[in-house]
Design a binder for these strands. Structure first.
Lengths: 198, 198
DNA sequence: ATTATTGTAGACCAATCAGTCTACATCGAT
DNA sequence: ATCGATGTAGACTGATTGGTCTACAATAAT
């Protein structure tokens, strides 16, 4: 099996080995333990990198978090623009295939939720920059999702897109809380209901 | 209009005024700012309570969080066991009315997501007690939801319940991230699709 | 061979945190 | 009137945090 999109996103863009090690350790710890609960020293330990190197490359914990946001965003765009776009299925089947990608993601041993959602949960939600970044990410995802929905010939594509987006977020959060990948399958079936009705 | 369930949950059980002030301030700050990001001193300021009183009543920040969990759980049980149960509608209409309650919740100026979900997001997700508490809460909610679904005569009530639960979580998270209550309406429509198909 | 870059190792600092402690005020029940 | 419980006010502590700094090693390009 080809390398999973989550790994590709962190490794295949031009990054030094040190940066890659830092990003992988940071993403894992930020999601599994929490961002505030993860100390810099812990990231350095698990990445096997010196403290100075982290501050050379990223300057601050906040910038490291932003870099982690970028790698997770890359994962999603690879899903939409490579994995799903290369399929010759119908638009409807491509939409449903997204939930199979979610299932693979949930089953990774280092899946502990979505960095964006988790980060919003533990940061200021009134005029906070994290929330703004997450909203922007969300809109990019929904634009791609919306294009597929439109191609599927839905009567009210915007509403169907919002419904599917809701189900996707619900599946991610359910998988995070329960620690089970079953939410992906439930989400796929709910998406079928929505597409059937809409 | 009667007092909202969220307030009732925090005030109507036998609690001292000090405890109520602490719980309201803690819930608000834990959700809006994050649990780790909220210092004890900040809670004391906003509650207008002395440091000693907090440690007299709750002993630790962790115990205060547990108490906040309890008040949010009470809110849900009031929804299910009082607000929804007192309706004379059909089971289907009671299920959909849950999304109207969610809308009211999302529109409160102190809504910043679900304490359980937010707490899981920023705590250890491998053998962490917060995750266990959230799973237990989730199961209680789903049991009540499942009873309504069963009463609605769904063919596969368990699967319909899981789908609806997914949509509920999706709506909560979407409302938290976007800061808009529209997710409740989208969730209601998605729930209608699910009930129609299931 | 030398130099610049990128790395490691770890001491160090100021700030902040959860939690403890002392001293004093208020007030209802006896 | 007094006493015990519950409250406020705020100094204090030990641990931990993000971030800086010095000293040194390895590597690659000139």
């Amino acid at each position: 099996m080809a390398k999973a999109a989550a790994d590709r996103a962190a490794t295949e863009t031009k990054k030094t080995a040190t940066e890659t090690k830092l990003l992988l350790a940071a993403r894992r710890l930020f999601c599994r333990v929490g961002i505030h609960a993860t100390g810099i020293s812990r990231i350095l330990e698990e990445a096997g990198v010196a403290r100075r190197s982290l501050y050379m490359h990223y300057g601050s914990k906040e910038n490291l978090l932003k870099a982690v946001f970028d790698t997770e965003a890359s994962m999603w765009f690879q899903w939409f623009d490579l994995d799903l776009a290369s399929r010759e299925d119908s638009a409807r089947e491509r939409i449903l295939a997204l939930f199979d990608l979610l299932k693979d993601w949930f089953e990774r041993e280092d899946f502990f939720g979505c960095v964006f959602i988790n980060a919003v949960a533990e940061h200021e939600k009134e005029n906070g920059w994290v929330k703004e970044v997450a909203i922007a990410h969300r809109e990019k995802i929904n634009a791609r999702l919306g294009a597929m929905v439109e191609a599927s010939g839905a009567r009210d594509p915007d509403m169907v897109t919002e419904k599917l987006s809701l189900v996707i977020d619900g599946a991610i959060v359910t998988a995070m809380v329960t620690g089970s990948s079953g939410a992906a399958h439930v989400g796929r079936l709910a998406a079928e209901d929505i597409l059937r009705s809409g």
